[in-house]
């Protein structure tokens, strides 16, 4: 029986070794880029975010999911202070980027926005040449390097170079939807941001273009920290390392319900409400 016993022990120990939790990378170990601390936001009298506290780890993709009106886009736009452009916006709490509070007095949202790039729901290239699209951000921010080199590098990183290298002077609007969105990504990385915010970047694209963008996101995550708002659960499960589920209910608007590694959230969510949402039994 000794052989069997030791085999059993061996089996036990290997199964313990392969227990799922060891497959999940630990978020606690990762270095935090953005730290949202007890953050609330109001549009005039209407509250949009309630005491959100969440840390986004460096060089990972975090997906923000949740039903419409749950505050996920608001949270995204709070991180580069795009919400400031809307009249009557009021905030409480802090958002720290590399430990510095971007809502502290004296912080210029213009500088915040250079460090936190953004890609929008509908591809919105400037009605100018591909080259000018990429160079605009660099020029206004006083880029001193070689322009041609920058254009090529950004387009390569956005996996667009091979498709457009022969007509950089063509209008950005002449590209297909998927190419336009990649151009917008190239444009965003031209100002060397640390973080790229993506607000439903594929919702206006066909499935193949969507997959190309997702592929690109995985690639970019090696250098940038990416936050993506998506309504597409499959997309979140495909691209994201971590998933944050947000929700508004009768009492609280815009709260964080669950946050964890993608594999955990999609196989075994802790919250019943997350479960109901991702399995499509919401309401």
């Amino acid at each position: 029986m000794t052989v069997q016993d030791s085999t059993a022990t061996l089996l036990k120990s290997t199964s313990a070794h392969h227990s799922p939790s060891t497959y999940y990378h630990s978020m606690a170990e990762a270095d935090t880029v953005i730290s949202v601390r007890n953050f609330s936001l109001w549009y005039s009298k209407k509250r949009a975010l309630t005491n959100v506290t969440i840390d986004f780890p460096r060089n990972q993709i975090t997906a923000l999911i949740g039903p419409s009106g749950c505050g996920k886009s608001t949270l995204l736009r709070a991180i580069n202070r795009m919400n400031d452009l809307i009249k009557g916006v009021r905030t409480e709490g802090n958002i720290l980027i590399d430990g510095n509070d971007i809502y502290a007095k004296g912080v210029d949202p213009v500088e915040v926005r250079r460090r936190i790039g953004m890609v929008f729901q509908k591809p919105n290239p400037f009605p100018r040449s591909i080259r000018e699209n990429i160079l605009f951000g660099a020029k206004i921010n006083g880029y001193k390097g070689d322009y041609d080199q920058l254009v090529e590098e950004c387009l390569r990183r956005a996996a667009l170079w091979d498709e457009v290298k022969d007509d950089l002077n063509k209008s950005g609007l002449a590209l297909s939807g998927g190419q336009q969105q990649r151009l917008c990504i190239a444009r965003a990385i031209a100002v060397a941001p640390e973080v790229i915010l993506m607000d439903e970047p594929c919702s206006a694209l066909d499935p193949i273009s969507t997959l190309r963008i997702e592929e690109l996101m995985r690639d970019l995550a090696k250098q940038y920290t990416i936050l993506v708002v998506t309504h597409n659960m499959q997309q979140a499960s495909r691209v994201a390392d971590n998933v944050a589920f947000m929700l508004s209910d009768d009492v609280t608007t815009g709260m964080l319900v669950e946050y964890g590694p993608t594999s955990e959230v999609f196989t075994n969510p802790k919250s019943k409400r997350t479960e109901d949402y991702i399995t499509g039994r919401f309401g």
Partner: peptide, 9 residues
């Protein structure tokens, strides 16, 4: 149906 969570399990 792309099941997730308890449905997938």
């Amino acid at each position: 149906q792309q099941p997730t969570a308890s449905d997938l399990r």
